[in-house]
């Protein structure tokens, strides 16, 4: 087994992610989340905007009307979806269902997906619900969950795709919460100075930054490994899910603490990100599930250890 280290996204992929980030920052601010929560509904214009950007077809081959890009690019865009707490089924349909259909040679729905006319709910035995359904109430008021079928699929590749894209969203969520907490720590004054001047505050934020920065390359590595079909891909995916969940979880807790009592209110936007983080930390395999996959592989010998592998 070769262990190619390619955790840095390409310049083209980063440019694409930047354009998506700019579009979402302009069109999908916190006021949109409040509007959707109050109306407990969807706004079709948001989906149409994503379609106009071509994002549902990001991974659909060009001959079926898509852009034909890979998992690395998709993971970067998934992080942008997390950053704005997007509730549209883009990640599920375009970045999980499409590569899964492609892996199975199932091309019948791809043109419809690329055109934005079809979204795909994804039942899997790892999840007790179906994302993209209706009828269940998530702690995240913007998430649409439906009842799981009695006999859901158990395909491990689907699970890995789901866990990878969830990890990527968690990175974006964590960075967004970091931005909010840092901005507040600079603005809010107590004892005659911004609270961010106190080490008790700034050190907490610095610790979160360490966790987030070290989670990112692990996520990109997992995307590359899964894209290349490496035998170690599942291990990388589990590593990414745990690292991203831990970073986002610590960031959520710290961001509330930095905001003080304001962080406990609905008036401050933070809670939308905190609730999405809570939901996604459990989705597509809990921390316990992914840690068990890692310890099975490391102690059981499936994941080679030693310097010739770790530093290859």
């Amino acid at each position: 087994m070769t262990m190619l280290m390619d955790p840095a996204p390409s310049a083209d992929a980063l440019a694409l992610a930047t354009s998506v980030r700019e579009y979402l920052a302009e069109t999908h601010g916190p006021e949109v989340l409040r509007r959707l929560d109050a109306a407990s509904g969807r706004d079709p214009a948001i989906w149409q905007g994503l379609v106009a950007m071509g994002l549902p077809g990001l991974m659909v081959p060009e001959d079926a009307g898509g852009m034909g890009l890979g998992l690395e690019e998709a993971a970067l865009i998934a992080a942008e979806c997390g950053r704005v707490c997007l509730a549209e089924p883009l990640v599920d349909t375009a970045f999980i269902a499409v590569p899964w259909l492609l892996a199975h040679g199932d091309t019948a729905l791809l043109a419809d997906i690329a055109a934005g006319n079809r979204t795909i709910p994804l039942p899997h035995a790892i999840n007790p619900w179906v994302d993209g359904g209706e009828g269940l109430h998530s702690v995240d008021p913007l998430r649409r969950l439906g009842t799981a079928p009695s006999d859901p699929p158990t395909d491990p590749h689907l699970l890995n795709l789901g866990a990878l894209m969830t990890a990527a969203q968690l990175v974006g969520l964590a960075e967004a919460m970091q931005d909010q907490a840092v901005a507040y720590a600079k603005l809010r004054e107590q004892f005659g100075q911004p609270i961010g001047a106190f080490q008790a505050i700034k050190h907490q934020l610095a610790s979160c930054t360490v966790a987030i920065e070290f989670a990112k390359p692990v996520v990109w590595q997992a995307a590359a490994a899964l894209a290349a079909g490496r035998s170690s891909a599942a291990i990388h995916v589990s590593h990414a899910k745990v690292a991203a969940s831990d970073a986002a979880w610590a960031m959520a807790e710290t961001a509330i603490q930095v905001h003080g009592a304001m962080g406990y209110t609905y008036e401050v936007d933070l809670h939308f990100w905190m609730k999405r983080t809570w939901a996604l930390c459990g989705a597509w395999g809990s921390r316990a599930f992914h840690l068990a996959r890692l310890d099975d592989a490391i102690i059981g010998g499936a994941h080679p250890i030693g310097p010739e592998h770790t530093f290859a």
Binding site: V139, E253, A261
Partner: peptide, 29 residues
């Protein structure tokens, strides 16, 4: 686990343990 994410009742109507999670966010504040 993931069951804790879902409320059997309605949005913003949770059972004791999910409520404990949300309430306890304020304890250290």
């Amino acid at each position: 686990g993931q069951a804790g994410e879902v409320s059997a009742h309605a949005d913003y109507e949770w059972d004791m343990l999910p409520n404990l999670f949300l309430y306890s966010r304020a304890d250290t504040i």
